[in-house]
């Protein structure tokens, strides 16, 4: 072996080694979901029921899976679990496939309200998996007056200054400001953005932090006494400390929906529809509620849940008709530029 051939040999050896590790696998359905958002034995059960293999990938955030499928032109995945504004964007970008209801008998398990979601009336390109509200989660034992308005968060009282957190995800952060001012959660008009920006910059000085992953943990430790929270996550706090309570402010909330989207690049339309049908069975709907502590649009699943659970976590009992009163976050389209600049201004403010 000569001097010059060493790198070439290393290169070749490494490539063949890695090729070996990633040898092509049999045709299967590829799903990407948040880790822990489906039953652990989903793949085994689905295989037993239909004979189809599931390959389950995990993503950390909507933004990451969205970036990944955009960069790959939609290739690589059959089904994605994403929040509704991202489902809408996937559809707008031409990456989502239409959903054939005739192949999904279990669609009948959904509440009628789950067919009327504004981002996709009639569930043409997405199927709702979970839904809920965004509100205030607080330590009733550490706060003098129970919060009831978004302004209790944005203009925190003296006793909780520095013990408040807001969600760091741009859309929900801004939603708090929009709702406090009676605006739409999808506002992109400059004067309104400026007004909310000024308010949120002011609020920033009274914040402990922006947090969209460990805020419930901060409530449990007592680091924070009031946090902006998704209802399901507040339940994780309540599970540890019953003094933690959740309230939807009087100005309202947004209605968030996590949904299932079929990718246009999928080559297994029949298998994909079988998968969605399987996910929508009552047993899986019940699993979501009991293990994730989110509300499910799956009526059959919700009705199978132990009533004691709904008492311990009151926000789980919100009726679908009430959920539908709240506005959903929508893809902002052209307005996104102005919106994201405003968010950067808030984030960079001292």
């Amino acid at each position: 072996m000569t001097f010059k051939t060493i790198p070439a040999a290393v290169f070749a050896a490494a490539l063949s080694f890695t090729a070996m590790l990633t040898a092509a696998q049999a045709e299967t359905l590829v799903i990407s979901n948040w880790d822990g958002y489906m039953p652990k034995d989903m793949a085994e059960k689905f295989k037993a029921a239909t004979g189809i293999d599931l390959e389950i990938a995990v993503h950390a955030t909507n933004e990451e899976i969205m970036g990944k499928v955009t960069a790959s032109g939609g290739e690589g995945f059959d089904v994605l679990f994403v929040s509704s504004p991202f489902a809408e964007a996937l559809n707008n970008l031409g990456l989502a496939a239409p959903i054939d209801h005739s192949k999904i008998p279990n669609m009948a398990n959904l509440y009628p309200e789950a067919m009327q979601l504004k981002h996709d009336p009639g569930n043409t390109f997405s199927v709702p998996y979970t839904w809920g509200t965004t509100g205030l989660c607080y330590r009733s034992d550490l706060i003098k007056t129970a919060p009831s308005s978004w302004n209790d968060l944005l203009k925190p009282a003296e006793d909780i200054k520095g013990k408040v957190t807001m969600l760091s995800t741009d859309r929900w952060l801004m939603a708090a400001g929009f709702l406090a001012n009676g605006m739409s959660v999808n506002t992109t008009e400059q004067a309104s953005l400026d007004k909310v920006r000024d308010q949120l910059v002011e609020t920033k000085r009274a914040l402990l932090s922006y947090d969209d992953t460990t805020f419930y943990s901060k409530l449990v430790s007592g680091e924070a006494s009031l946090v902006q929270a998704w209802d399901g996550w507040c339940n994780y706090g309540i599970a540890e400390k019953p003094e933690i309570k959740y309230v939807i402010p009087k100005e309202g909330s947004d209605l968030w929906v996590d949904s299932i989207v079929v990718m246009k690049a999928s080559k297994n339309p029949d298998a994909v529809h079988k998968f969605i049908d399987f996910v929508l069975n009552a047993e899986n709907g019940k699993w979501v509620v009991e293990n994730i502590m989110y509300k499910s649009p799956n009526k059959a699943g919700m009705e199978a849940v132990d009533k004691a659970m709904l008492e311990k976590y009151p926000n789980m009992a919100i009726a679908p008709a009430d959920l539908l009163k709240y506005e959903q976050l929508r893809d902002l389209g052209e307005g996104m530029k102005a919106f994201s600049k405003t968010v950067s201004e808030i984030m960079a403010a001292k």
Partner: peptide, 22 residues
């Protein structure tokens, strides 16, 4: 560790690609 209260160029670029999808 900054509690999201500091915006650095790394965050800004990351956000443009993934959050703003710009």
């Amino acid at each position: 560790l900054g509690g999201g209260k500091l915006q650095m160029i790394g965050n800004l670029i990351y956000d443009q690609f993934l959050t703003a999808r710009d």
